[in-house]
Amino acid sequence: MVYGYECKKHGPGSPVRVGIVREFAAALRNKKIANGVLCTTATFTADALAESQVNMIYPQDVVAIHKWIQDLALPES
């Protein structure tokens, strides 16, 4: 299973907007990658989340990223 990842390093007050999701979706289509994961250090707007769902993209906001890092870096805690 191949995944395409897009990483958006945004400030806390700058959520990922729907245009970025569409852009990523288009890039995935171009590359013929079925599974997309959009990672950000911020959050997503409601439109962006809805668009992610439409395009089968997994949105990973800062909370999810944090948990992911914790799982990897602090496996015992």
Partner: peptide
């Protein structure tokens, strides 16, 4: 990783490229 795991705010000190590499 441990530092960011303990305080997520440290992630904002990364550059966009570093964030990509971190995810990788």
């Amino acid at each position: 990783l441990k530092r960011i795991a303990k305080d997520i705010r440290d992630i904002h000190g990364l550059t966009p490229r570093q964030f990509e590499e971190l995810v990788a």
